[in-house]
């Protein structure tokens, strides 16, 4: 199977560490005044970044090409941040437990379930949602193929299916209908549009000529 070449080791970037240190300097004083639990104060001497219960912490993300400085509670998932705080409701909440794939987004180009990661864990990452896929009014080829092949019925799973399909093609996992079915298995469609979804992906893989 062809695979994207990825480095097996990703060294931490200096600029991010420095940013966190700056945050720590600012926020530890604020925290000391606001909360002053001894554990937190002691921990702050050792840890890079820290947030107490209910305390919001800053997180820097690039979302659909736009750099954002946000503030979230640690318990907020990436999915809830996108939907509730940024009104990017194209990304759907289906099961909220990583079983359905409706919440699929790209982080640094890789597809993940946004319901099973915390927003604060994505510090410094580039997030792409379904809203960031098209180029203005020009739909992404996978979006066009889904329309052409009727790759949906109710449409609720569709943003996740499309984000997953784009990544599946990019990974080189769309070599055959069988391989597409295997590598798209994390996206459930309860309307059962699977045949058309596979056809849409095959169509893009083959250069959009088979419609």
């Amino acid at each position: 199977m062809p695979q994207e070449n990825k480095p097996s080791s990703v060294p931490p970037k200096k600029d991010k560490q420095e940013a966190r240190r700056d945050f720590l300097k600012q926020s530890s004083a604020v925290m000391a005044l606001a909360l002053a639990p001894p554990l937190v104060l002691k921990a702050a001497q050792h840890d890079e970044a820290i947030a107490a219960v209910f305390e919001k912490m800053p997180v820097n993300l690039e979302i659909n090409g736009k750099k954002m400085q946000l503030s979230v509670e640690p318990r907020v998932t990436l999915l809830d941040l996108l939907r509730e705080q940024l009104a990017l409701t194209g990304t759907k909440k289906g099961c909220d437990h990583g079983q359905c794939g409706a919440c699929t987004v790209h982080v640094n180009g890789q597809r993940i379930n946004s319901c099973l990661t915390l927003a604060v864990m994505q510090e410094g990452k580039k997030i792409t949602t379904i809203e960031g896929l098209s180029n203005g009014d020009q739909l992404h080829p996978v979006q066009e193929a889904f329309i052409r092949h009727d790759g949906f019925q109710c449409g609720y799973c569709t943003p996740g299916q499309i984000m997953s399909a784009v990544a599946c093609l990019h990974e080189g996992h769309a070599g055959s209908p069988e391989q597409i079915r295997e590598f798209m298995s994390g996206n459930i469609c309860r309307c059962g549009a699977y045949d058309n979804i596979v056809n849409a992906i095959m169509d893009v893989k083959n250069g959009g000529q088979t419609a």
């Binding site: 931490p12 921990a43 840890d47 890079e48 820290i50 640690p74 510090e123």
Partner: peptide
């Protein structure tokens, strides 16, 4: 449920955080 969050940058800091 709410929880606090730390992001240590060394193995020692991570293990120390758990010990606390």
């Amino acid at each position: 449920n709410p929880f606090s969050y730390v992001r240590p940058n060394s193995l020692k800091a991570a293990i120390d955080a758990m010990a606390r």
